[in-house]
Amino acid sequence: MIFQQFFEAESHTYSYLLACEQSRQAVLIDPVESEVAHYIDALNSQGLTLAYTLETHVHADHVTAADALRQRLGSQSVIHRDAGVLCGDLLVTDGMHLKVGSLDIEVRYTPGHTNGCVSYCLGDRIFTGDALLINGCGRTDFQQGDAGQLYDSVHRQIFSLPDATLVYPGHDYHGHTVSTVGKEKRDNPRLGGQISRAAFVQLMANLKLAPPIQMAVALPANQSCGRQVVNQSS
């Protein structure tokens, strides 16, 4: 398998390139619109064809590159059916498998940060978006967020995996690039160490976080797969 991790510094977003070495078919998880040129360079340099862009959820902190890549490369946009995004080419549900050459990517529904969150599981690793971060998790105070639901999602769909499973998050703000299920179960300050569901819900209710800086632009754009609508005055 070909694997490459990208980092977009403004929103601290990780994107991931996965590809089959035999078929040269590739996917990008959570691509950022401002980084399209980097993705295309990476694809071209390795002789890869982009089959899918996989969204873990509707992002509030950056604009997805799904539409830009679809227009330029013919890739298909993948998002969960409950995300409220009608522009997706493929609306997935829990337990579905995406076959890309020899890659078999399992969709795991992990709502709580938003109602349409998924994680993508492939072999020894899982891509958790904002559901589970390294030493943290996504906020639950808007976009149909639900702290109790997030607690259940992480424990049922992520912490149930083998401890050695690699965790690749959607963001990191402290220079971490990868963790493991075992480490997060043990050490995650929000979800690890046997914290109860009630205690987690209370913790999340008292975070009082400021809105994401790019939310006013990102949310409407991402509801159109990254196509930004320009208002024209009469």
Rank of each mutant, 00 (worst) to 15 (best):
S233D: 10
D67F: 13
F200G: 06
A66R: 04
I29W: 02
L103S: 03
Y14R: 05
L69T: 06
R24F: 00
H174D: 11
V58K: 12
Q228E: 14
R81Y: 05
Y173M: 12
F7E: 04
H174V: 11
L90F: 03
V154D: 02
R81F: 07
F3L: 15
T140Q: 08
H176G: 12
S153R: 06
Q202E: 14
Q228G: 09
T165K: 13
G192Y: 08
L54W: 00
G148W: 00
E10F: 10
A9P: 13
S34F: 05
A66K: 04
G47Y: 09
R156M: 12
I126H: 04
V63I: 15
Q71Y: 01
Y168M: 15
G145Y: 02
A164H: 12
G148I: 05
N206D: 11
S75Q: 12
I158H: 02
I2Q: 10
R24T: 09
L122S: 02
H171Y: 07
G226H: 01
I213E: 09
H12T: 14
F127S: 08
I213L: 09
H80W: 01
D67A: 14
L91Y: 04
I158M: 05
Q144T: 11
N44E: 15
I126C: 07
C121D: 00
T177I: 13
V92Q: 02
T56R: 07
F200R: 09
R72D: 03
Y151R: 07
Y173V: 13
S102Q: 13
G95Q: 09
A210D: 11
A66I: 02
V229F: 01
S224Q: 15
V100C: 07
